[in-house]
Amino acid sequence: MPTIVSVDDSTVPGEGSSRLLLLVSSDNKHIVVEEDIMSRSRFISKQVEGFEATSQRHAILLPFSSFVLNKVIEYCSHYRGYYLLEDDPDAAPPGRSPVREWDQEFLDVDRNMLLRIIKAAHYLEIKSLVGSCARAIADMIRGKTTEEMREILGVENDFTPEEEHSPSSKCTG
């Protein structure tokens, strides 16, 4: 199955012909972006469908900072006009298709940023980006002990001592 396939030219409107969207980040930055670019996001596409039904276009408020939003826009711009199999609603769970080199470089960021990007991608329903981030996080924790994992990702241990020593938490197959 294809990972990336350039969409037939006739179906991609020329640059600048797409309508514009106004996105507002949590730090109240207004970012104007072409609708085309953001069509990879199921969340944005659904919003746009809503606009079409009511013939009214609003700003779309997003619960993350402009720093993260710009990063997501950079991703969507890079793959503008490309078909990514994982974004297909019927595709297998994200993160299973071959690694794209560009994504690896794009996600060569610190841990906090990576977590913020995956959260934004999840909110915006961009499966391919969730998959690439998940793979980067999985690479980070693969083969680590429980203690190392808590430390790397800053997760708190909320087991009581009894739970931690109960046989059910130990029996993991």
Partner: peptide, 29 residues
Amino acid sequence: HDPLQLPDILAVIFGLLDASSNASNALVC
């Protein structure tokens, strides 16, 4: 970091890991 408490995201990440990593994950929280 709250994304790592979202079940959907955790399920995608854990789905990419082998059994021994997930056995460790099961003891994290």
